[in-house]
Nucleic acid binder design. Structure first.
Lengths: 339, 339
DNA sequence: CTGTCGAATGTGAACGATCACATGCGCCGC
DNA sequence: GCGGCGCATGTGATCGTTCACATTCGACAG
């Protein structure tokens, strides 16, 4: 009782209390099969009594793995990356892994390399790179081999396993929805072209139009920001042939709605607007925004699954899984007036 | 050249190559003063030649510190917590620390305790708890002592050092701005009352009104969501005596603007609206939103500073620093029509 | 000349777990 | 009846660093 020298219990203390060897305690901790039921109970009781917690550092040193996953994240507060990180953390925690995060200010080769370096130094078991930029694709190729790594939202044709939401399919969903409402064609306000997702959404938009035999209007370039959506809106608002606009994300759609409103064009009566992401605010814009939802939790889960398969030796069963997006129809899209 | 067995270099390899003992290498790595200049150079050269990286696990085991900081974060995609996390990561990286993150689904006592447990198990040097909820304050009190810990946005009167943005001052800024424009009084749509920040904003609102000798109208309860702002808007829109509304965050202000618009009340001509947070979208709402900006980077920096002071033995110089917020005036606020 | 001190460096033992291998023992098959 | 196999458990080495203490050597004061 009073002998306790304020020191945390280690495995040998547990062994002594349970009357077994330290190795038996280790076996119990790691669920080794050949431990007698009764012995296991005795050990577990001792563990509880001493409030013993295995030291992760020692574990990592002795064993091969740290049960830590490093995440290289782009230094941004955008909804997508943040949601992906959260989804990954949740999945990892359930699987008994911890998350070590490094945020990058710039997603260039040096930055990514240094971040991965930093993480391997910490003996992470694997790395997830949230790399939505084109520049990241190059950086990812020059990674030190030997570290199990999974890439998110990038370079789906590359050597590394990757997980991503099917942006092309998402964009097609949006465009097909608008065409089905009766619009002759759909305009597009794009994201920045150094983002892979932005390119894929452009591709999906174009594919859907071409598949339907529609004219493909010129693309309006944007950069994810509400401002770019606003400016695009001012550009398009006075054209009577613009009846439907697909914005590359919800923030841009927000700016677009504002510009239309200012120019006296009503949504969806005059112009239908569809966004992408389904940010929490989307349902509360005026009007509530029709958009494409991405399942970031699923992305996180699949990242972890791929990583675990990588740990087990072989490559993952599916090297480049694509998570299907879904369309959320709200009030910002409707039939054109002529229809 | 060909003898290299694909094994990473360890400290003894460096020692051998440099012709010194492993301990001397260790001294060089840790900037111990008593190493001859020439010896230091020789060691550093060997380090570079072998591309040696000290193993963080071994370091953590042998030494006392892991250079890791654990972050307990509430499982949310809200702008504030996400920005705080990012600011903290940046500050930590500059100081040579890494971030270990645990996201909580529920911010109750058991959750916080388990998260901190999980982190101490990983031998983190210290813990930052992003705990904006009242329930967290209780949980934080029952923390195992001995782990240096700093709390964010919570319980500024508690035993643990805390860092937070001065919410009361922020709310006063907003209200004083509206009163200065000539409004008789200011209504408030609150955040959820189990959030400390929400309570502080209510306090600031009330203080500012009382200080100015204004009538304090009943508070409208909300929950951060755009929906709650929208509903509050429908409630207030048909009251002619409502000319100025201070919303507890920007999302609520967004919903408020939509409701006003639907009810045919214009902002700011009929009703002025002010938000809180300055989310990236705020500048692009219709109209652009006047709001209170919080400096989350500064919060991150101060958290780290407090933690480092805690490591050095003594408590931090300032136990409960409050980061001042600032008012960002945009188009959603203006003088009342009568003025 | 000698004793003491501090700077520079080395030696071996931690740190707290796992791994590789050894041991004892009951059971089965020939 | 006995060799061998598999289960349950124990023993010592090992992971890669830092810590505690020992050693060497030159400088300097008494």
């Amino acid at each position: 009782m009073s002998q306790q020298p304020a020191r945390v219990a280690v495995i040998r203390d547990v062994a002594r209390l349970a009357g077994v060897s330290h190795q038996t305690v280790s076996r119990v901790l790691n669920n080794h099969p050949s431990v007698r039921e009764e012995t296991r109970d005795r050990v577990l009781r001792a563990v509880q009594q001493l409030n013993f917690r295995p030291n992760a550092m020692a574990r990592g040193l002795a064993g091969r793995r740290s049960r830590l996953i490093g995440v290289v994240s782009f230094d941004t507060l955008l909804y997508g990356p943040a949601a992906t990180l959260l989804g990954l953390e949740r999945a990892a925690r359930r699987a008994g892994y911890g998350i070590r995060i490094v945020a990058l200010e710039q997603l260039d080769r040096a930055g990514v390399a240094e971040a991965v370096d930093r993480l391997t130094e910490q003996s992470v078991d694997g790395v997830v790179i949230i790399a939505p930029l084109m520049t990241a694709a190059a950086a990812v190729h020059s990674l030190p081999t030997g570290v199990p790594a999974v890439v998110v939202e990038s370079d789906t044709a590359g050597e590394l396993p990757s997980v991503s939401v099917d942006q092309v399919a998402g964009a097609r969903l949006a465009v097909e929805h608008l065409l089905a409402l009766g619009h002759r064609t759909v305009w597009h306000v794009s994201g920045p072209q150094d983002w892979l997702e932005a390119r894929d959404r452009v591709d999906g938009w174009r594919q859907a139009l071409e598949a339907a035999g529609c004219r493909v209007p010129p693309m309006v370039s944007g950069d994810w920001s509400p401002r770019s959506g606003y400016e695009a809106g001012r550009l398009l608002a006075d054209r009577p042939d613009v009846t439907a606009v697909f914005c590359a994300n919800d923030q841009q759609a927000l700016g677009m709605l504002r510009a239309l409103h200012e120019q006296g064009r009503r949504a969806p009566e005059d112009v239908s607007v569809v966004g992408f992401d389904d940010i929490p605010e989307a349902a509360y814009l005026s009007p509530p925004l029709t958009t494409v939802r991405q399942d970031f939790d699923e992305v996180g889960r699949r990242c972890l699954a791929a990583l675990l398969e990588l740990f087990d030796g072989g490559g993952p069963a599916v090297r480049h899984p694509r998570v299907p997006p879904s369309l959320v129809v709200r009030a910002s899209s409707g039939p054109p007036r002529s229809a």
